[in-house]
Amino acid sequence: MIENRPWLTFVSHFSLLLGIGVVALPVWVALVASTHPSSSFGAGEIPLWFGDQAVENWRSVFLGEASSGVDVPVWYMMLNSFIMALGITVGKLFISLLSAYAIVFFRFPFRGACFWVIFITLMLPVEVRIVPTYEVVANLDMLNSYSGLILPLIASATATFLFRQCFMTMPGELIEAARMDGAGPIRFFFDILLPMSRTNIAALFVIMFIYGWNQYLWPVIITTDDAYYTLVMSIKRMLAVDQGDIEWNHVMVTTLLAMIPPVAVVIGMQKLFVKGLVDAEK
């Protein structure tokens, strides 16, 4: 029996609308600010409705005509961010899948110890090991390169742990059936294990892509060439103005451009993620 409580429905909907407003208000302010000239922010006031400079502001920022403190256009920095985020995501998924597969389905000495060594690295984020990591990257001559931006960040104990837990739920009958059908380790991995793990892969792809896209500290440390600057780094450079006023309209355009790829990935992967959950229930 379902009880009819109008006040509870009202409170629930009001809380939901309030949460949406809190999340959407900064995006709305950034979108509106991107359509005004820089002079509109001189008095410290924030306009709340659209202006008439949207096309000019977005074109000048995207093509690098606006002053951003970096010698490359924004579209090029977006490309750098995309290469870095995609490389980190694919690398994390590939290494985590293989390591979890080896730990769960292969018998070798110190298998449990290997897993716990990987798991303990959760307590060592990039910020903790930044100095030795930088020294290794510098000795390998990978400063100011895509390999230096990507390779030190592709190891993921979290993804390894989640894939290990997923693989441990696979029924033993399935493994025996694959062996009886003559499926070797490689065929079992690609034809059976990966399709059954698509839900985890889709979820971790979204998380890892956003993680790679929003990286700031590591690119700042190893990058001195503007040709390898990422979009998140450029926002900080645009705010670091020694003389003159900050061009907030251009900052807001760059901020919105930095939001588009992660949002697109979330929307694009949502259908696959939900489909994986539905298929798993079946």
Rank of each mutant, 00 (worst) to 15 (best):
F119V: 12
L231S: 07
I186G: 10
N57Q: 06
S34E: 02
M123K: 06
G148K: 10
Q215P: 04
I246W: 05
W49H: 09
I186Y: 12
I222C: 11
A280D: 07
M196H: 14
R129K: 15
A202I: 05
M142N: 06
Y101F: 15
Y134E: 00
D52S: 14
A177L: 09
T9L: 12
V29A: 08
P171E: 09
D181W: 11
A183L: 15
S147F: 11
S39Q: 10
K282W: 08
V117K: 03
L48A: 09
T158P: 01
F115D: 02
V265R: 11
Y216N: 02
A280T: 00
A138H: 14
G19F: 08
N249T: 05
F108L: 04
I260Y: 07
A85T: 11
L257H: 04
N200H: 11
V61N: 00
F188Y: 15
Q53G: 00
S15W: 05
A43I: 07
F106A: 12
V136C: 07
M252E: 02
T224A: 14
F273A: 00
S197G: 04
E65Q: 14
N80P: 01
L93E: 02
L204N: 01
S96W: 00
F82I: 07
V126N: 05
Q243S: 15
W49I: 09
H250E: 02
V23D: 01
V251Y: 04
M168H: 05
I154D: 00
P125W: 11
I83S: 00
L272D: 06
V22G: 06
S68T: 14
E247M: 07
Q243K: 14
L93R: 03
M142P: 00
P262Y: 07
G276S: 04
T160V: 14
A54H: 05
Y216E: 01
I192Y: 12
T160W: 01
L17K: 05
N249Y: 05
E135N: 13
E281P: 01
